[in-house]
Design a protein around this nucleic acid. Structure first.
Length: 513
RNA sequence: GUCCUGUUCGUCUAGUGGUUAGGACUCAAGAUUUUCAUUCUUGCAACAGGGGUUCGACUCCCCUACGGGAUACCA
């Protein structure tokens, strides 16, 4: 059987990292089995519609390397892909009518105020369920069940707004199999009469979701665990429509929790704890507030993908570093975990570091280049930058470190490390003078000749490695850490290297050593 | 409150009745390295609690505790 999965975000705000993981699991299953991977935009709530949110989803998935097979801008056999468009095409109304005709749903005319009143009444009477609309209350409300057909028709004719609600049966067992949680059972008496069609005629998530999944031939509903509670309603909908034989497999993914375990990962906690919850940066069109994403923080999408995949799933072996193809190959729903997962930023950093170290400098070049420019440096030639990346990549965790931790590739030191400077004594200065002179006279400028001058100066001045290397590093970079001094010198060139030694001699006050 | 769901090192996890409970991240110590980083070695560290079932429970069942989710004309 063909596997059809779908990722169905709603454009009510920027997609967050939990959504990205949901998309990723869909993608992995699709990559493994083939079939179709549909991106569907669930924009049935026009009040909460946020401009730019859909573009944000598209750009985020593109950055992550998560390709869907059909969706907005990529027409396939199941379009259109925005529920608002599907509604305009009249896709949902017949199904809602079918439900009403079949006695599975009914019309309700209650105002928000009346609903609130009932809610209050329920809680005041100490009812455990605060639901204002259920088998217990529906006959006290204004709907096509409690009103006579004439009254109902009169209200409709008068243009009174109404919603369509699910008529939840009184006593029915609702059992469904979830690939992650196994058998889950609900009792219909605990469920309320959810709104299926809003008073503006737009379907709610529940209706649209079930109808679309059916129409699109979705075989696996992979979504976050926050949906587990509404699954019985969906199952009842499948039953009411007579679609129970083709009901999709449910896969409710464990939630991604805040690092401190306090609830599902949120922007609020991210701000508090200092990490992003968005894949890429986002500017709120309403407030203008800007949030950085993992991309801007300097994470590689491959690292992100690897980390996210392992947040709630494991391949069944000890392998941790896997590319998309390898993960897809190893992917299996049975290996998806069932308990909430705290977001471990340290582990993500480790993945990022690992991927940066393993990357080809040419692969990193396009992302590092803009960072160099953004820092205000003149952007060197590609060959230079690639070599700098090569020298730095095993000591970098985040992409911006390529600029932050090695400014010396782009400019002469503007300050010198105090501790190292204090050891820049007379002997060191003498050695540096000698080395500068030797370098000036060098006709070939490569690692070998540089090392040769190093050996020569040690012999001449009768000093060890430290008396040469430490002051040289200080002169060249101003900082105590970094790639080998000769590698740096070789890269920045003869004139620059000599100039930096001369500058250090001039600018660093005589130490105490 | 009610319903659903979960609970193995600090974190991510392996484990499906008999294991010295394994790996990874973090942290600590040491070795290598002209600095830093890398690499390598070692170490610290867990089956929420209580009852059953069983010759034997981390593994199966029940209860408790503690998390998480859902309880909208939001998704």
């Amino acid at each position: 059987m063909e596997v059809v999965v779908r990722f169905a975000p709603s454009p009510t705000g920027p997609l967050h990292i939990g959504g990205v993981r949901t998309a990723l699991y869909n993608y992995l299953l699709y990559k493994k089995h083939g079939g179709r991977f549909i991106l569907r935009i669930e924009d049935t709530d026009q009040n909460r519609f946020v401009p730019g949110a859909e573009e944000f989803v598209l750009e985020s998935l593109a950055w992550m390397g998560i390709d869907f097979s059909e969706g907005p801008g990529k027409e396939g056999e199941s379009g259109p892909y925005r529920q608002s468009e599907r509604h305009k095409a009249g896709l949902y109304t017949p199904f809602a009518e079918q439900l009403v005709r079949g006695g599975h749903a009914y019309l309700a005319f209650d105002t928000p105020e009346e609903l609130d009143a009932m809610r209050e009444k329920m809680t005041a009477e100490g009812h455990k369920s605060g639901a204002p609309y259920s088998f217990a209350t529906r006959h006290q409300m204004k709907n096509s069940l409690s009103l006579t057909p004439e009254e109902v028709q009169a209200r409709i004719d008068a243009g009174e707004p109404y919603v369509i609600r699910m008529l939840m049966p009184r006593k029915e067992e609702i059992r469904f199999y979830d690939e992650v949680h196994q058998w889950v059972m609900f009792h219909s008496s605990q469920l309320d009469d959810k709104v299926l069609v809003k008073s503006d005629g737009m379907p709610t998530y529940h209706l649209a979701n079930v109808v679309d999944d059916h129409l699109m031939g979705v075989t696996h509903v992979i979504r976050g665990e926050e949906w587990l509670s509404s699954t019985p309603l969906h199952v009842m909908l499948y039953r009411a429509f007579g679609w129970e034989r083709s009901i999709p497999a449910f896969v409710h993914l464990p939630l991604i929790l805040n690092p401190n375990g306090e609830g599902k990962m949120s922007k609020r906690m991210g701000d508090k704890l200092g990490f992003s919850v968005f894949p890429i940066s986002w500017t709120d069109p309403e407030t203008g507030n800007h949030s950085f994403g993992f991309r801007e923080a300097g994470y590689l999408p491959e690292a992100m993908m690897n980390f996210l995949a392992l947040l709630g799933w494991n391949p069944g072996h000890d392998e941790e570093i896997m590319d998309a193809a390898r993960m897809a190959e190893a992917f299996s729903l049975e290996k998806v975990n069932n308990s909430g997962t705290k977001f471990d930023i340290d582990k993500l950093k480790w993945f990022n570091q690992t991927y940066i170290r393993a990357a080809k400098p040419a692969h990193l070049l396009p992302v590092v280049k803009p960072l160099v420019a953004a820092a205000g440096f003149a952007v060197p030639e590609d060959a230079f930058l690639e070599e700098a990346i090569h020298l730095m990549q095993e000591r970098v965790t985040l992409l911006p470190d390529f600029v932050q931790d090695c400014r010396f590739f782009f400019e002469a030191p503007t300050a010198y490390d105090a501790k190292m400077s204090s050891k820049f004594g007379p002997k060191e200065r003498e050695v540096m003078e000698g080395l500068a002179t030797k370098w000036e006279n060098l006709t070939t400028w490569d690692l070998d000749s540089l090392h040769a001058t190093f050996e020569a100066i040690k012999l001449e001045m009768e000093v060890g490695n430290g008396k040469v290397l430490a002051p040289l590093r200080l002169a060249l970079t101003g900082v105590p850490a970094g790639p080998g001094a000769f590698e740096i010198a070789a890269l920045i060139g003869k004139n620059e290297s000599v100039a930096r030694i001369r500058a250090a001699l001039k600018n660093i006050p005589l130490g105490t050593a």
